[in-house]
């Protein structure tokens, strides 16, 4: 099923996703400030809301400097990839019944594929910059995102087993009786952690790690190219939050309020949680990160998958 005006809904989703990402810059700064007993940006416009406008004007006006030593085509392509892949994932995101760009029967797989492609952006950016810090950031990103990708997919298989489909609207509908967070709690926790790693957020921001690597893979970027990485990260955060609410918290399902409101409510609480984690946690060492991923998370995801499979077999 596709919505009646494909072009309109594509535009709508793209615009909403972009404005949420821009708005998140403000939200994150205000929330971080709240948890650090400060105020954050509160001067430009009501509650500092126009800070977003000021920041975007600033970043558009900035010189877009491409250093002479970089690999030009790849350098220019890299920020576009992160943008495109995240926006593509929004295409399969069901906001409310009927409000979806394209209801693929393999929507979940498409989302996973797109988030894997996002790794390319970071790795290529690090490689093409011809800068040791950027390269180190890109290497870290490759290792980190590949290893967290593995159990990210596995943690979602429990949901697929319970719902019996890869289509996201159908998964939401399958949660009418009970949200999947209850039968699939380990899967939820695993996906949350993998999502944090996938969006390269603190505590998994080792590819950026500004205290060790200048700014990691985007050290050489400036102007709107840097802005694309920045906005891409925030779109990634909103995408993962939306996915958590769709897959584990029943998406648009909820009493009284209309579905869209429920969807955004759930999504924003997870965004706030992402910011809270950023405010609270330090960055682990890289070997800790890797051994945590392969020795703890992956076995847990497999056990969860086996247990869910056994339970589904026993009940049917």
């Amino acid at each position: 099923m596709t919505s009646p005006h494909p072009i309109l809904s594509i535009l709508g989703v793209a615009i909403v996703a972009l404005s949420i990402a821009a708005f998140l810059i403000w939200v994150e700064r205000r929330l971080l400030a709240l948890w650090q007993d400060r105020y954050g940006p509160n001067r430009v416009g009501p509650f500092g809301l126009l800070q977003v406008a000021a920041d975007s004007i600033k970043i558009f006006m900035k010189e877009d400097w491409i250093p002479p030593f970089v690999d030009r085509p790849v350098f220019i392509l890299a920020p576009a990839i992160v943008f495109v892949t995240v926006l593509m994932s929004f295409a399969v995101l069901p906001v409310a019944p009927g409000i979806i760009v394209s209801d693929l029967s393999v929507g979940l797989l498409f989302f996973l594929a797109m988030s894997s492609l996002g790794v390319y952006s970071v790795v290529l950016a690090g490689w093409s910059s011809n800068n040791k810090y950027a390269l180190l950031g890109g290497l870290r990103a490759a290792a980190q995102m590949l290893s967290y990708e593995v159990f990210m997919g596995l943690s979602l298989m429990g949901v697929v087993l319970l719902a019996g489909t890869f289509s996201l609207p159908a998964i939401v509908e399958a949660q009418r009786t009970i949200w999947f967070v209850i039968p699939q709690f380990p899967g939820f926790v695993l996906f949350l952690i993998a999502g944090l790693a996938e969006t390269r957020r603190i505590p998994f921001d080792l590819p950026e790690a500004e205290s060790e690597l200048v700014a990691g893979y985007h050290s050489e970027y400036s102007g709107m190219k840097f802005g694309m990485f920045f906005v891409g990260e925030y779109m990634g955060v909103s995408l993962i939050s939306a996915m958590i609410s769709v897959l584990f918290f029943g998406g648009w399902l909820g009493p009284v309020l209309p579905g869209v409101v429920w969807f955004f409510l759930k999504m924003f609480s997870f965004i706030a949680f992402f910011v809270l984690v950023r405010a609270a946690l330090p960055r682990p060492r890289f070997d800790q990160l890797m051994s945590w991923g392969w020795k703890v998370m992956l076995p847990l995801a497999l056990i969860n998958l086996l247990a869910t499979g056994a339970a589904v077999l026993a009940w049917r």
């Binding site: 709240l34 948890w35 650090q36 007993d37 400060r38 105020y39 809270l276 405010a279 609270a280 946690l281």
Partner: peptide, 15 residues
């Protein structure tokens, strides 16, 4: 840690 940081939502801001 996350919980303690969250509790800061209800504290007075020092700015």
């Amino acid at each position: 840690t996350i919980w303690y940081v969250f509790l800061h939502s209800f504290q007075k801001r020092i700015t």
